[in-house]
Design a protein around this nucleic acid. Structure first.
Lengths: 107, 107
DNA sequence: TTGACATGCAACCAAATGGTTCCATATTAA
DNA sequence: TTAATATGGAACCATTTGGTTGCATGTCAA
């Protein structure tokens, strides 16, 4: 799986908003997803293409409409991995951080 | 907390690598973090500034050296929130996705 | 068939991004 | 004091990014 594509896809506010919208109601068409996005249809289509490229969204043609479906797996995977990575050192890192920054002089 | 800054900070491969390095050993100086980064010291410093801006890294001056400490809280927070958001609809979304994409014709 | 509708494609543009280089400043060591 | 070391600042550059517009294509409905 391409971590980088997923991270970069998530780096944009508008794309996270599109994911939120698909969470609220899955399978929406491009036209539906354009509502209240305050940018052109083509701009929204580009964002969706980036999400699709990152495998965060899958699409299906239904007649002349393109439906968009969220794919929760990649984001769940990286979130899981990053959480797991951070959970262990978290407490020690935190106390260490506080000590070194607040306390002042200990190495 | 500024989600956007955190997401964008994590969107870059080099910055994720710097976080990895700090996980491996916390409190490293700029000079240490420059090793094997295949870019100039100033470039690394810019990346670290972005991480610091996103509150993912805290720094402390020790003489003429600047030490860098990872702050696991923000990334843990957004990961938690995104995981939680995705966990509930995950199973249903997945089965729905499979049905609509593989199966073909059901709405 | 004809027209409206939903989308794609491509060219273009401004701004942000990731990098560089040169020089300045502060701290340590000889 | 002087020199080396660790970092910061600013100007600059190429590429990427996020947006636009105009036009083309395919599908549905009258």
């Amino acid at each position: 799986m391409d971590d980088d594509a997923v991270f970069r896809a998530l780096a944009d506010q508008s794309r996270r908003r599109l994911l939120d919208r698909l969470f609220a109601r899955n399978g929406q068409t491009l036209g539906e997803l354009c509502h209240d996005m305050d940018m052109s249809r083509q701009a929204v289509a580009k964002h969706l293409a980036i999400l699709e490229e990152a495998n965060l969204v899958a699409t299906r043609w239904q007649g002349r409409e393109k439906q968009h479906f969220i794919n929760p797996v990649p984001i769940h995977d990286i979130a899981e991995r990053w959480i797991r990575k951070f959970e262990q050192p978290m407490l020690t890192a935190l106390s260490q951080l506080k000590k070194t920054l607040e306390g002042g002089e200990d190495a």
